[in-house]
Design a protein around this nucleic acid. Sequence first.
RNA 1: GGGCCCAUAGCUCAGCGGAUAGAGCUCCUGCCUUCUAAGCAGGAUGUCGCAGGUUCGAUUCCUGCUGGGCCCGCCA
Length: 565
Amino acid sequence: MKELKTIIESALGSCKKEGLLLLDETPEIIFETPKQAEHGDLSTNVAMLLAKAEKKAPRKVAEDIAAKIPVPSAVLTSVSVAGPGFINFKINPLYLLNVLHEIYKKNEDYGSLDFGGGKKVQVEFVSANPTGPLHVGHGRGAVYGDSLARLLSKAGFKVTKEYYLNDAGVQMQTLGKSVWLRMKELGGEKVEFPENCYQGGYIKDIAKEVLALRPRAMTIESEDDFISFCGKYAGEKIHNEIVKDLEDCGVTHEVFFYESTLHKKGKVQAAMEFLEKNGDAYEKEGAVWFRSTKYGDEKDRVLKKSDGTYTYFAADIAYHKDKFDRGFDKVIDVWGADHAGHVPRMKAAIAAIGHNPKDFDAVLIQLVNLMRGGELISMSTRSAQYETLRSLLDEVGKDVCRYFFLMRSHEAQLDFDIELAKSQTMENPVYYIQYAHARISSVFAKAVETGIKLKFSNKIDLNLLNLPDEAQLAKFLGEYPSVIKESAARLEPHRISFYLLELARKFQSYYTKGKKEQAYRFLSDNKELTAAKCYLLKNIQIVLKNGLTLLGLEAPDRMESKDEL
RNA sequence: GGGCCCAUAGCUCAGCGGAUAGAGCUCCUGCCUUCUAAGCAGGAUGUCGCAGGUUCGAUUCCUGCUGGGCCCGCCA
């Protein structure tokens, strides 16, 4: 609405010139779509913002401004003042419809912005340790991170998706030991299986594999060597399965970063030295501490334990230093809500390694409560059938899974009811949105079938789209870029879900009117009119597909019938 | 005890400085000879957790409180 902004600015200018307004400061002009349709297509609150400085009643200010706005024009059909001092506008339908040419021309690039200015952003997400399969909580973070990356990239950032693997430290050791113990069990030995070892059934499967692969290794090799082999084998195997799970979820990463490389290249030590040099690290009680309190953390944190090994946090500092060293302007970590307590120390660390903590965002993803028909499924026990992302994917499928993870704000806990997810009703809106897309394809198929040639071009006469729904649909399509911008700025891909739902709803309503009113039929004997209507449909479809792609969902040309599922 | 998140219709949730607070589910009433009824139209339902404060204006921002979740390790 650049033109409208210019119109307001020039109206303000006239008011100042005639002495109606002082305008010592120019206010920010913001437009919004009124909730009530009777209030027009757009409104602005500038008059209310100005009222105080002008020492005038907001309504009076609004009226003065409104009087200087010429109507009707190519942009506006009417201006009015209402409520406490809103200036409401009715937009010329033809002006609204013009956006269709822009959408059609840009197609899949419609909604692409330079908001990010080409800044390099890294999104690190999932980063689950290869000690067991992904659970549904990981799934939410995975889908969120993936969609966020798509969104930021659409908004003009240069995005790298990264996965950090803890392949060093005690975990891999424990994993190896778990496998080794299960192997001994398989060999008929009675073993005490410690609580801190990995309990899952997948460990036994891996044990069987290793046994088949190297049946005599256990007797030949030293215990330490063999446990370390088991750990490495299991880690790789589990990691591969994680990657497969993610792929089936439509989630991919460009970089897999191994913690071990930090140690090998001496980067952890280098980071420690960096902190020490600046007086941000000190020794106490046989350990080395990070002076995180200096940067606002509530207490100092251990970097190097008294046994001489580094903490996870120390490696994490080195890792984040490495991220910035690689030239990222902005670093986003997607964490589970249980890591909330780590944010202050990480922010402190970012500051200590010489970067602005504002360039580091830790997005916390709240819990997923997995349910079935209203009953909570326990997440803590092994017996929980749907604990893993894999089993959820197998049962509800990729699109439903992703949509459910993206239909809520990431900072609110999510109730994921498998029964609802499987139902094909409005409780599961993913089908509704896809249905809108498919329906449009279906109309086109019908057109072809009845011998209508579909030709989309900017030669289409938009004047023919004279139904109110048509201008309103065009207006809504025109809002898509601002939805992208807002979603990207707030790191909230769920806003796209809501936008798409509303677009689908508007389309369905428009479509259904054709059942009753001939004027609403898309396909008719009037070639030009049919072409214009199909052009609008094409544009709706472009935006639907565009948004679905951001969410990582399919945009089908036809829906499978209910009975087939 | 401290920190973070949540609290909006019977249920699941949007909105996050503006005009009569929205959507879906649920409950009623209609709508398939004609582009997919996985759909549409209409109706019903709210002290926006409580109490203060900032503001011309607060569900939205701030403070306190209450209730629920997560976290507070020389674990990762």
